[in-house]
Design a protein around this nucleic acid. Structure first.
Lengths: 168, 168
DNA sequence: TAAAATATGTCAACAAAGCTGACATATTTT
DNA sequence: AAAATATGTCAGCTTTGTTGACATATTTTA
């Protein structure tokens, strides 16, 4: 530490420390902090599962998403993928090119509209997607362990309700 | 497009197109794709809410997390925050410094251990954190709309079950 | 009390993954 | 023939994460 400027003393003084909030934020009960934070921690841990696997291939989370959705909907076009991921084509281009060059995804010119590039997973791409989904599915199964079928449906209802309306 | 190399023809040929998967990945029913994808879309939309507000202050999502947790637990130390966010101190330093310099957070030397820097939100910091939590809480309320208290508890149970075990 | 450990800060370099803007090509639609 | 569309690509920038090294103040330990 080179200078301990900016470090206020504990007691109220001219530094404006008296303006500080020492009480936990409650929002007067209007804010659902329990869900906000539970969602944050759950998602943080959820996406950490595949990271070890991705490291081995030299890929990141962006590659994970691409290989996942191409496997879930083989034949989807680049435009479909952009719409699903909500990123720019320049952003997608980088990771998609790497997945194609590495032999996990292939492109096929659209049979009707030959401008399109339909995306298909190779055998290796399918295997990678499954390997990535596995630990996530195990985590879900663990969270569902003590739950009834009805309760699991409630979770699906919640996740659906948290999403933006589909624009179709 | 400069070259249409790498673009395979539709029908099986020597390019190895016959190795492609044209069927949607199912994982033999062992993988819970509905939750995996529902979680992805829900979280994507959930974190998009505060973005418009953050833009105005010139902050990003990293700042959001910091200002949120400091408001939720005023007096937490830098080490506490690092443990909560699971990022490096160099990564935290950047955004924390900006929040301090902009007057949203202040540091106070620890009363017992004076090496520590206890973090407190200013009035502006409290207001920002609440403004960011509001649209997220509204989204949660919408997803909860048709749910009973028991069903809401199921959601909390799910989010808790998805998290890694606390290391205490 | 001197030495070691701890909490924090900081410099520098780098990587992943997003963004904007501009422009090229092939193909389809008008 | 011209315009629109789907895709690719170049260049540069931003945010947010990483490692490694080292500095300072303070507390703990030997």
């Amino acid at each position: 530490m080179k200078g301990n400027d900016n470090v206020a003393r504990q007691m109220p003084d001219k530094n404006g420390v008296s303006e500080l909030h020492h009480d936990a934020m409650t929002g007067g009960g209007r804010i659902d902090f329990e869900i906000i934070e539970g969602f944050f921690f759950a998602y943080r841990d959820f996406i950490s599962d595949p990271d070890a696997i991705l490291e081995k291939s030299g890929f990141g989370r962006a590659h994970h998403r691409v290989v996942h959705f191409v496997n879930r909907e083989p034949g989807m076009t680049v435009a479909d993928l952009l719409d699903t991921l909500k990123i720019t084509k320049q952003s997608l281009a980088r990771v998609l090119k790497q997945l194609i060059d590495s032999g996990y995804i292939q492109q096929v010119a659209g049979p009707e509209d030959r401008r399109q590039r339909k995306l298909y997973p190779t055998r290796a791409g399918r295997e990678l997607a499954l390997a990535l989904a596995e630990p996530q599915s195990r985590r879900i199964a663990r969270a569902f362990e003590a739950m009834s079928a009805d309760e699991r449906r409630v979770v699906i209802q919640f996740l659906t309700g948290m999403q933006n309306a589909k624009s179709e």
